[in-house]
Design a protein around this nucleic acid. Sequence first.
DNA 1: CCAACAATGTGATAACTGTCACACAATCGT
DNA 2: ACGATTGTGTGACAGTTATCACATTGTTGG
Lengths: 214, 214
Amino acid sequence: MKTKDNKIPEATIKRLSTYVNYLGRLGTDSNPVISSEILGESCQVSPAQIRKDLSYFGEFGVRGVGYDTKKLEAEIKDILGINHSWPTTVIGVGKLGQALLNFDFFRNHGFRIIAAFDSDPGKIGARITDEISILPTGDIEKTVNEKQISIGIITTPADWAQDVADRLIAGGIKGILNFAPIKVKVPDSIILRNVSITSELDNLAYLLTQKKRQ
Amino acid sequence: MKTKDNKIPEATIKRLSTYVNYLGRLGTDSNPVISSEILGESCQVSPAQIRKDLSYFGEFGVRGVGYDTKKLEAEIKDILGINHSWPTTVIGVGKLGQALLNFDFFRNHGFRIIAAFDSDPGKIGARITDEISILPTGDIEKTVNEKQISIGIITTPADWAQDVADRLIAGGIKGILNFAPIKVKVPDSIILRNVSITSELDNLAYLLTQKKRQ
DNA sequence: CCAACAATGTGATAACTGTCACACAATCGT
DNA sequence: ACGATTGTGTGACAGTTATCACATTGTTGG
Ligand SMILES: NC(=O)c1ccc[n+]([C@@H]2O[C@H](COP(=O)([O-])OP(=O)(O)OC[C@H]3O[C@@H](n4cnc5c(N)ncnc54)[C@H](O)[C@@H]3O)[C@@H](O)[C@H]2O)c1
Ligand SMILES: NC(=O)c1ccc[n+]([C@@H]2O[C@H](COP(=O)([O-])OP(=O)(O)OC[C@H]3O[C@@H](n4cnc5c(N)ncnc54)[C@H](O)[C@@H]3O)[C@@H](O)[C@H]2O)c1
């Protein structure tokens, strides 16, 4: 795969994720080929935007025809790096952590949760699946290191997020997805992304308020 | 509150949410005043960016001093429209829906979940809290209308998201927060925001892959 | 009262992102 | 064989967002 440039807009990556998700839901048998027009309608993105997004990474379509559905899906998965399974762990098996642990979608789309941690003695040892049982927080460093876990998902209360992040990093984690409503500090070598559900709701509230005030 | 302009960057709103969240966590007693420098360090935003963000809405600080912590928090809540409680409902009381229903944080920060819906006969009728028990999907229109619910949070499987959205809209909903991995179609008058956890993970995978390939 | 200082608010500028039009390549029908 | 048609790929342009420098304004200590 060629990357013409390394200055890809973040929004482009987000859209690629949408495209690949939609392509995966398509019956490839009935739709062997798809145009940017049709794809755009489903993803609510302009056709030109789709072509532009793809053009950052190469030429995947056939002029006058469109894109081979299956091939395009594979190409985007390759671009995003979800054509293999990233070993992943969840720390904090509360309400949200359990939802993520039981979310099968991940398994088929590039992520494999292979460990779970909690600090609650009442939870430690509980089986989640055949291969996962809840480990104590103190084991994070060792386990991440031994199992070569790449991605850590933090779903502990905010007060513990930094501590957990530090442990993950000590164990050699590569990337962190943080659900706690706090900005954890990590060295530049670690990729960090935050999911802020609260901020999405706040945004909704703002737009509703705007509409009312206008 | 004055709004100088109605072209506020979406990123600004997202950051305001971060600021207000951080300010809420501060002990206002020990920190009656805060500078853009300090706030920026905690929120990982440049001081200039913070001042710019706030300047879209007015002048809230005192030159040479900084911002009154409590007052700034109140001002941002006012800007975002989270200085009162939005009546909210969750549709799809599965793993994720339950996590959201039990997330107390919302209650103290501008959102009050006052109804929950599911289509599973085994779940209907179950009590969530004193005031909420799970209602059947067929009641969405009526309940949203009667209780004047403003915001609907969709946590059903993707295949049902559009149906649920249509019912919410028929009931007079104002805004929708959608967790299902599909783009639901809504009229322009409805505010729609999507939370895509998968896309955040994809983004993480992309960045990790980039790092590896570089 | 004034000078030294601290931190805000903002216009100018740079960087980034999205839109659009159209050249170009492949296919299809005659 | 070739013109008509379809839909991609991309350069030029427009719009948006972030960064920076500094003028401005309030505070504090002598
Ligand atoms: N529930 C939601 O809908 C929601 C939404 C947005 C953000 N969040 C955030 O996600 C995080 C988890 O939320 P939740 O609702 O699942 O809370 P929860 O209380 O249900 O779960 C937290 C879990 O973390 C465990 N834990 C505490 N300290 C720990 C530590 N040091 N190491 C490992 N595990 C530890 C607890 O034992 C518990 O099982 C919080 O930071 C919350 O703000 C939750
Ligand atoms: N669990 C996660 O971590 C996670 C992460 C990202 C996105 N999501 C998305 O959130 C949604 C819910 O995920 P989940 O893990 O909670 O699934 P789940 O299967 O645990 O829950 C889905 C719930 O929706 C109910 N439901 C089904 N059809 C309905 C209808 N027509 N009306 C009302 N309720 C209906 C089901 O009875 C069930 O209780 C899915 O779209 C999923 O893709 C989940």
